[in-house]
Amino acid sequence: MQHPRDSVADGGPDERFSRFVAARWRALTHTAYLLTGDFHEAEDLVQTTLARVYTHWHRVRPDTAEQYVRRALVNANRSRYRKRRVVHLLQAALPESLAADGGGLGAGEERDALIDALADLPERQRAVVVLRYWEDLPAEEVARTLGCSVGTVKSQASRALAKLRGHRALVGHPLATRLGDR
C-alpha cells in the first residue's frame, strides 16, 4: 500500500524512510543515549528500532512518523531495560559516587554524574525526564508516547526531579542545587 503522500517524486516509502533516518538519526541517538546511558548501546538501540519500523513503514502516516518511531524506541528500550534489570540493580548498589572524590566536578564530570543519576531512576521516570526535558515534548505527548495519563507524567516528572536533586552522584554538585531553583 502506498501512502497518498508518497508521490513518484518522493521515491516511495523506501526513499521516505531513508530520508527520515538520515534526518533523525542524530536526534534519535542522543535520545537513546539519555535513555540507556551508553552511546554504543544507544546506536544499537536506534538501529534495531529503525529496522523494525522499516518492516511496516508503508503503514506509518508521515505526519505521525516522528511520534511512531519515538514510541517504538521507548518500547524497545523498555524491553532492553527489563532484560538488564538485574544488572541495573547491581550497579545501583555499588558504593561508587563521583561526589566521593571530593567535589570540584568539571563539565565532563557533570555529564557523567548526570548520566549516573539518570541510570538510577526507574525506567518510566527516566523516559519521562528524557521526553519531557530533552525532547521538550508537552506532557500530553509524553503521555501518548508512554501510554499513560497526563497526571502520571506530571507526577513521574516531579518524583524524578526530586530524586535527581538528592542523588549521591550529584551531591555537592551545582546541578543538584540548580535543580531546586527556577
Binding site: H30, L34, E110, R111, W134, D136, L175, R178, L179, R182
Partner: peptide
C-alpha cells in the same frame, strides 16, 4: 518543575560531548 531549565541545559551538555 523547578529546575527544569537547568536540567534541560545539563542534558544538552551531556549529549553535546557525544
Amino acid at each position: 518543575e523547578p529546575g527544569a531549565v537547568r536540567l534541560r541545559a545539563a542534558l544538552a551538555r551531556s549529549v553535546a560531548a557525544r
